[in-house]
């Protein structure tokens, strides 16, 4: 028992140590700009994890919505394109997709050589997730009775107006709970970006582990940060679901 306590104390001290020299800061935060403690380094990695996940989520929602709608349009070419997109991004491992974004596409499009790996990771992760979002948007629109689409068109709305005012407001609300679980997935999947050297949590904990030989301590801190992220998303999901639930749906207000 006292062994364990001593170990915890050692780990805590390590986290408050500067990453450049053996200085231990009692506050766990280095005062100057040029220095930082291991705790700060890991927080920095957490920030990258959340940033990559957030940007990728925005891309995934935007693209996924468009692709999902395409898969419900009365146009065979649009449906085919949407399905091909979904299958392509769903059936290749996300790690392979990121390697292609980082090491293959810049060879084909030299412009991409000026783009940072972090940006490419956001795009890669976003498009990977867009296939799943599209699936859910399509399923959401499919739950709406066909009559509503016909009613909209019969009233003289254009197809775009029917989607804008009739189908999407209901369809998107139906899928919102699954979309929050998708944002949980994207935080977890952002960990794969470590493989193309994006300085997120996994990358940082491996680097800090190598530097200190205290892999366990760094993994533990990273795990705590991931669990906190998951809990926060979970709370947010419950809140959003309550706010957007349709009053006519089961369990409505």
């Amino acid at each position: 028992m006292s062994d364990l306590l001593a170990q915890i104390k050692d780990s805590a001290t390590l986290m408050c140590t500067s990453i450049d020299d053996p200085t231990v800061y009692p506050s766990c935060f280095a005062p100057g700009k040029g220095d930082m403690t291991y705790l700060q380094w890991m927080l920095h990695g957490w920030g990258w994890t959340l940033l990559v996940a957030l940007v990728a989520l925005v891309i995934a929602l935007g693209v996924g919505m468009v692709i999902g709608v395409m898969r419900t349009l009365p146009n065979k070419a649009a449906v085919l394109f949407g399905e091909a997109w979904s299958e392509l991004f769903r059936n290749v491992p996300v790690l392979v997709q990121l390697f292609i974004w980082a090491f293959v596409l810049p060879e084909i499009f030299p412009v991409l050589k000026q783009v940072s790996y972090a940006t490419l990771a956001c795009v890669g992760l976003g498009l990977f997730t867009s296939a799943r979002v599209a699936q859910q948007v399509k399923a959401g629109i499919a739950t709406i009775p066909k009559g509503q689409r016909y009613a909209g068109l019969a009233m003289g709305l254009t197809l775009a107006q029917t989607y804008r005012y009739v189908l999407l407001p209901v369809g998107l609300r139906v899928v919102l709970p699954t979309l929050t679980s998708e944002s949980m997935n994207i935080i977890k999947n952002s960990s794969v970006a470590y493989a193309i050297s994006v300085p997120e949590l996994i990358w940082t904990s491996i680097q800090a582990g190598e530097q200190t030989s205290a892999h366990g301590t760094m993994y533990f801190v990273a795990t705590i940060f991931y669990v906190i992220s998951a809990l926060a998303i979970n709370r947010l999901a419950v809140f959003i679901e309550r706010r957007t639930r349709l009053s006519t749906a089961m369990g409505g207000k």
Binding site: K188, S191, I202, I206, T223, Y226, S229
Partner: peptide, 16 residues
Amino acid sequence: LLRSVPLVMVILWFFL
């Protein structure tokens, strides 16, 4: 616990 942590993290943990 396992569902809130990325697979990569779990792989690293087990190997350690």
